[in-house]
Write a protein that binds this DNA or RNA. Structure first.
Lengths: 196, 196
DNA sequence: TTGCTTACTTATTACTAAGTAAGTACGTTT
DNA sequence: AAACGTACTTACTTAGTAATAAGTAAGCAA
């Protein structure tokens, strides 16, 4: 019996997933390889295949983990106890973190462009992720409008889809240009949704 | 001297550029190869290298042509003679054509995701293209607000950047889901900018 | 201690990528 | 008729790609 933490070096399986996600976000799914991962983690490419037999498996695992994280986050009392406009602020905060993280793109923004080259299972997972995101955001927007703290015209679902694509697009803009472009778009969004 | 049109079969150079753009838009820059183009055009890959020595040259040529088309379109009297809100409608029309064209993505939306894997010259061209687009759209929006036909809050440049990224994101959304998603976002945009 | 599992490595297969050098067919110019 | 330029093809190199098969070292379980 040892009181040494068993996970001083985190599970290779998770380190692979973390790095793969990082590479996916910064280069796209078709522009990273098992060799990239292997080199960085100082293992052989075959070791990656051991944990994720095919690249499709790896891609699906990345999206599924993000979906699990969303489900968990969405249900956190720390979040659900907040009024709608603060839930919206918290949601925006996630995108600001994406911006800071030097990857500057979300899963949707990263995978949508090469969508047609993705394995079917990844396409399906990505569809689910965006549906769940839209559904969540639409709920927040609707509650905020009822409470009089969030302002918009039209259907909550339509507005949610618009806000989501704008945020994804704004992160892409930040990558092509710089942070200032993102903040410009971001503040425009806030100005319209949350006027004091 | 023949009165037969010299370009019954269009220049291979142009056919390559057309097909490469189509492939770029539908699969992304890293997911198409000279072999794809060669097979489709029934020539050898080396023939593509003859016209575009490197893939970077080919990519740059695609973006530059799009910039030239924008410059030309922007200056057309048929467009410049219109009032601002109809210029905006004409601009929207271009994105609706993108949607119909079965590629369902614009150059920005296609290249932003894998931006960091692109050759420097392509990055520079893409920056120029988006700057020119934003500048044009900001002008239209400002004129429309002055004329009282286009409605928005904040700076024209900020609003233009927001509209542009929303349109790009909406096309990506259409690819991941379907046309209905695009129209939802698109109508939301029109509802806000052009209320009757 | 035997058997089995986990987590790999080594070595290889089959394929695709971009790019190049040398040659050729053909129409135009001189 | 000779020379030249254009637009290719043929044949190749170099470097990567995902994936698999076979082997191994360490640990646990009966």
């Amino acid at each position: 019996m040892s009181n040494q933490p068993q996970v001083l070096v985190p599970d290779t399986r998770i380190r692979i997933l973390d790095l793969a996600q990082q590479l996916l976000l910064s280069r796209g799914f078709n522009a990273f390889s098992y060799q990239h991962i292997a080199k960085e983690l100082a293992v052989k490419p075959a070791a990656i295949h051991y944990h994720y037999p095919t690249k499709e498996d790896l891609g699906v695992a990345i999206i599924q983990r993000q979906r699990r994280r969303l489900h968990k986050w969405r249900g956190l009392p720390r979040l659900t106890d907040l009024p709608a406009q603060q839930q919206l602020e918290a949601f925006f905060e996630v995108y600001l973190e994406h911006l800071q993280s030097e990857q500057r793109v979300c899963l949707f923004g990263s995978l949508a462009a090469e969508f047609r080259t993705l394995p079917e299972a990844m396409q399906q997972e990505l569809r689910l992720l965006t549906l769940e995101l839209t559904e969540f955001l639409a709920g927040v927007l609707e509650a905020g409008r009822v409470a009089g703290t969030i302002v918009f015209r039209g259907q909550p679902t339509a507005k949610a889809a618009q806000v989501l694509t704008t945020l994804a697009g704004a992160l892409q803009m930040a990558r092509v240009h710089d942070e200032r472009q993102f903040h410009m778009i971001f503040e425009q969004l806030r100005l319209e949704l949350l006027p004091e």
